[in-house]
Design a protein around this nucleic acid. Structure first.
Lengths: 353, 353
DNA sequence: TTGAAAGCGCTAACAT
DNA sequence: ATGTTAGCGCTTTCAA
């Protein structure tokens, strides 16, 4: 007499229904599970018994025998970050339509947490994993998933040496274009600011820990170089978390910078606030542009010129790729690159004379 | 020779490790699972065999026998809504600390989707469910969870006739206080705007589909009544989704309203945009206040006066309550009410003469 | 179309 | 401290 150890209740099982309907367990399972064949009479009888007893399937038991859980794991930096929230929704919708649920884990962009998350998901036998990898250059945290042959798809960032499907935004082109807006307005002293950690001062050619930031920096440097600006690398400011966006912005102003490219919406926000508190007028004194068309960028005064990301689609397409693999697709790995879109608003003007 | 049906690989099991270490399955399980006792020698031998073979536990099999999945389900209106994203993060942190993962489902505030989500979670044998119920007045979608005795906790909204733990913000007091700001500035014609669906025109005493909005409306009406304003119910505007916030705002202006209380940040944002496009100055022409201290409210010009919600804590406390129940606590149901906090900024001024 | 029996990987009694 | 055995609820051969 099996009893739920959690609340002492007895759950109705296939066996119970079978007994009540006077058929074998196999037959009851077939009609309840909707597979195999059964005569109409039997089907009705079983269904009636199931309703009568209050049968509810145990998806775990099913997973034990079929090997499929109809769950996929998603690992994001921080679900509280609107970027990840949107991407997660995109993934959730696609997943749901295909009959999958999402197990959500936050990595806080830490490799250890990410690795641990993967272990947990694997132990729970998810059918596949969708992750925005914390590190592009050190993909060891993803190893277990790959080694154990679970479908894995990367979104927003790629990871070196990990041969799986990926979906990212075209940060290189987007960054070039965004930087160009400043260049076209006449700016020559433009800074790029990011929170990404980097051991030393940035030098052109350095590889950054996140492929998307890496691409953004390369686009920025490329645009400056094309504009004939000497040693563009010196305009790249990383480690903003450690050093503080406020301090960096203040230093930038002192250095006579006239334009700023914020590597993401959070940095843009911090820079915006700091300049306001410093009494620096945007765009009269300094022009500011940022990645991500976040809510606030169209509500602020001035509204910000931004490079809009296909965030929802990043998650949705990631889920699509993953589900395809789960279904058994053995095609060569695919690398989807989604376009970004420039939204010009009021935060750019020519540099002060 | 068991084989993973998903990718044709053989997973290493406790039995394999036991055989390799020349101990019984039970012993191997004991050291691998970290329960029961084992001599140091055996422990080392088993561990070595496990490492050697590459053993990875199957959490599902464990759940089958223990009845505990170490997963909790969370059902939100829409994870893309920053409110739910924050609450989810709060819940995720508490859950993780206690060894639980989150299965995330969006209800889109629809009872059907909510009910379905609950069925799915129950089938997956989550240890408990955390939900922001789509409907306060029709809790039938929650029935299955209650009937089947799974721990259930409601957050942000309560549900009639469902005797489970709840955690909500003090919307009644918050709304009173927020409305009072407008009253104190001298406003007498103040509108409350919400997207919540309501069959007919609002009348004082009507029960709304969301307890939090219901409380906000009651707080608003109460404050107006206390200020001696006649028939406060006529200032309540619901169905903003159907009728359109834009249209409502326009009509309000025509009606000579001088102050608006936005029922949530999204409405506040829509109203803000509409007034800006109409050339209506905030707060010179119309004062605007809203619930939720969302990002944009401090970046906009003017910055908004808002009633800040303990969003993170709503999720965190919900998870705490739930985990307590999962642990077997049989105390009477608890109803936690968290304080809100007024943040005064620049969007309120006396009404125009 | 239906049934019997084995098995998924693990834990929990119960013995020893 | 260790082993034996049964069982969680389902699906899946294989036979009938």
């Amino acid at each position: 007499m099996p009893v739920d150890p959690l609340n002492g209740r007895r759950e109705v099982t296939v066996s119970d229904v079978a007994a009540a309907a006077k058929v074998s367990k196999a037959t009851a399972a077939r009609v309840l599970g909707g597979y195999g064949a059964a005569s109409e009479a039997v089907r009705d009888r079983v269904q009636a018994a199931a309703d009568e007893l209050g049968y509810h399937p145990n998806a775990l038991a099913k997973t034990m025998t079929t090997g499929r859980s109809n769950s996929i794991g998603i690992i994001v930096g921080d679900i509280e970050n609107p970027f990840f929230a949107q991407a997660t929704r995109g993934a959730a919708d696609v997943a749901k339509a295909a009959g999958y649920d999402l197990i959500l884990l936050n990595s806080d962009e830490e490799a250890d947490a990410e690795q641990n998350a993967i272990s947990v998901l694997l132990a729970k036998r998810v059918d596949g994993i969708l992750v925005a990898p914390a590190s592009t250059t050190d993909p060891s945290s993803l190893r277990e998933a790959v080694e154990r042959g679970r479908p894995l798809v990367l979104f927003d960032r790629v990871a070196d040496g990990v041969d799986v499907d990926t979906v990212v935004a075209d940060n290189l082109a987007g960054s070039r274009q965004l930087t160009q807006v400043l260049l076209d307005a006449g700016h020559r002293r433009i800074a790029f600011v990011s929170t990404i950690a980097h051991s030393s001062g940035y030098r052109v050619g350095d590889r950054l820990g996140s492929s998307s930031v890496d691409d953004r920096v390369r686009g920025f440097v490329g645009a400056l170089a094309d504009a004939g600006i000497d040693d563009p690398g010196r305009f790249v400011h990383l480690n903003a978390r450690r050093d503080g966006v406020d301090a960096i912005v203040r230093r930038l102003i002192d250095d006579g910078i006239t334009g700023i490219v914020a590597s993401d919406s959070l940095i843009g926000q911090a820079a915006f606030r700091k300049m306001r508190s410093l009494g620096i007028r945007i765009p009269t004194d300094v022009s500011l542009v940022a990645f991500d068309d976040a809510d606030w960028t169209s509500l602020s005064a001035p509204a910000l010129t931004v490079m809009s990301q296909p965030i929802h689609e990043l998650g949705a397409e990631g889920a699509r790729l993953l589900i395809r693999r789960i279904a058994g697709d053995r095609a060569p790995t695919e690398h989807v690159v989604l376009a970004q879109r420039l939204v010009e608003r009021e935060s750019v003007a020519p540099p002060p004379a």
